[in-house]
């Protein structure tokens, strides 16, 4: 059986993690969610994630910093940024700093799944189920 995709989701809005956890698990990801950047970075120090999804704008540490720390520790990890509308410029900066892609709030779970699927492909994973939405009612 193929290794499952290791995903970390960081957003200081707890509901984001709460909803993305099952949404991504459904497509075959192992998901850990955090709403505090400090804890997330600590976890990144301990474990290698294939994909990190992080909000760009947070209270204490911002997404760019998270991006830098993650890439410093795990250069191969794909980092996907979540941006608000006022931070498109910051998102560009993030891309320049090595982020894989960004996704603008508000987004649907499927949109994130698509980005993650592309990232997985880039990493060489084949088995990410893009069609999870078919399970829906």
């Amino acid at each position: 059986m193929q290794e499952r995709l290791q995903v970390l989701v960081l957003d200081d809005e707890p509901i984001v993690g709460k909803r993305l956890q099952p949404a991504l698990a459904k497509v075959g990801c192992d998901v850990e969610v955090f709403d505090a950047p400090g804890q997330a970075l600590q976890r990144v120090g301990e474990k290698r994630f294939d994909i990190v999804v992080t909000d760009i704008r947070m209270e204490d540490i911002d997404g760019i910093e998270v991006l830098e720390k993650v890439l410093e520790r795990w250069p191969k990890t794909k980092v996907i940024m979540i941006t608000g509308y006022a931070t498109v410029e910051v998102a560009r900066e993030a891309i320049a700093k090595g982020a894989f892609d960004f996704i603008a709030k508000p987004f649907k779970p499927q949109e994130l799944r698509d980005v993650i699927a592309r990232a997985a492909e880039a990493l060489g994973f084949a088995g990410v189920d893009r069609a999870a939405a078919d399970d829906s009612v």
């Binding site: 984001v16 509308y85 931070t87 508000p106 987004f107 829906s136 009612v137």
Partner: peptide, 24 residues
Amino acid sequence: GVAHELNNPINNITLTAEMLKEDY
């Protein structure tokens, strides 16, 4: 700023509503 801040609850609503629909 308001537009930006408004994104958060809207995003929460979108995610929640989508998942509710998906997994109802």
